[in-house]
Design a protein around this nucleic acid. Sequence first.
DNA 1: TGATAATGAGCGGGCGCTCAGTCGGAGGTG
DNA 2: CACCTCCGACTGAGCGCCCGCTCATTATCA
Lengths: 207, 207
Amino acid sequence: MPLDVSTQVKDPERVRLRREQIVQASVRLFTEKGFHKTTTREIAKASGLSNGALYEYVQSKEDVLYLVCRHIHREVRNRLASTLTEPGSAAKRLRHALCRFGELVLSMQDEILLIYQESKSLPRLYLHEVLSEEQQVVAVFEQLLREGLADQSILVEEKDIPVLAENAVVMGQMLAFRRWAWKQKSTESVLNTQVNAFLASVHSTTD
Amino acid sequence: MPLDVSTQVKDPERVRLRREQIVQASVRLFTEKGFHKTTTREIAKASGLSNGALYEYVQSKEDVLYLVCRHIHREVRNRLASTLTEPGSAAKRLRHALCRFGELVLSMQDEILLIYQESKSLPRLYLHEVLSEEQQVVAVFEQLLREGLADQSILVEEKDIPVLAENAVVMGQMLAFRRWAWKQKSTESVLNTQVNAFLASVHSTTD
DNA sequence: TGATAATGAGCGGGCGCTCAGTCGGAGGTG
DNA sequence: CACCTCCGACTGAGCGCCCGCTCATTATCA
């Protein structure tokens, strides 16, 4: 249940359109310079709006950050959900989901990094919402792990599952926020290492 | 080779002392409100100095952030180094180092989080230095993994070691930067899960 | 008494945000 | 059709504030 961001403009379609411009421009600016060093004037200009018009669609600079985070999470969730329709054993599906999640992270490196670095600047309410959206991603892997436990294709203790699911997500996200550390390696080979490491950590039995 | 931060004050002992005050106060402030929302006036006041005096020991606000990061890394490195004197097989020493690193992270949660969230605000030169200090921590685990490979107490491919060492560090740091995700669990039990998960991921043979 | 350290009011500038005013077009009227 | 009215969207100069940093001045010592 995403939070509402209030606006002065009546036409909802126009709001959608303008906010799309705002988000698109802001992702670029925040990625390049960070949230704090980007001015609202820059946001307005890059969105093709005047200073005043920007504030017709948003009540504060933090609103913009929230719109950006929500947009990114929405895309992650949509793309992740589309990978869960595969058949096969839980371990197979887990591997598949890990690979896809990794590719997803790689193709959205800047955006993932952005959320990691800037979400702490969100007001409390917005922050909670963003974190709970993140937990929905974690929940996907929790679910897969539980199914693996059920069909015995992975071997872990039930009580460890929340932590292990978190590991799956973070190990994927590392492809974005630690990319500087292995610049000489190909990204696919790192992804492969990560997937295998995670599967080994849950004693998956299909390698 | 830590970078010099320039000062107007001649007496080195006095510089050391005052900067200790500055770092101590800043760690608290940055932890509570973040780097950007902390003003230099607050830093000066909390350090027991005047606005002007602060700038006798530092040339910019970013200098303060660098001093803070350097201080934290120094403590991490010192405490980690003191855990490496144990005897035994590589796998045993690896497990030991992971546990100690985890405890270290738990006891410095705020500081670790601080580096994660704020180091991106450092000027390029400082940032590189901080990142390379981080790599020294990673190098400790690389070393242990290589020794494990040599005495066959772990089973991985040489080419994966850099990535796996990075995993070890990040899985430890998760205790700090994902603490909100498992608030109901005891920290020791999470630590245990993490250590076991990592050892399994490198097929360690001493469990 | 001279060098060094500390003071704190204040400068310059930039920032988030506002608001009096303009524009344009949908709709009403004769 | 010409004309007028009205209202929602948009403009951009500018307000008020605060922040990083400085420097003329004062205090403190050897």
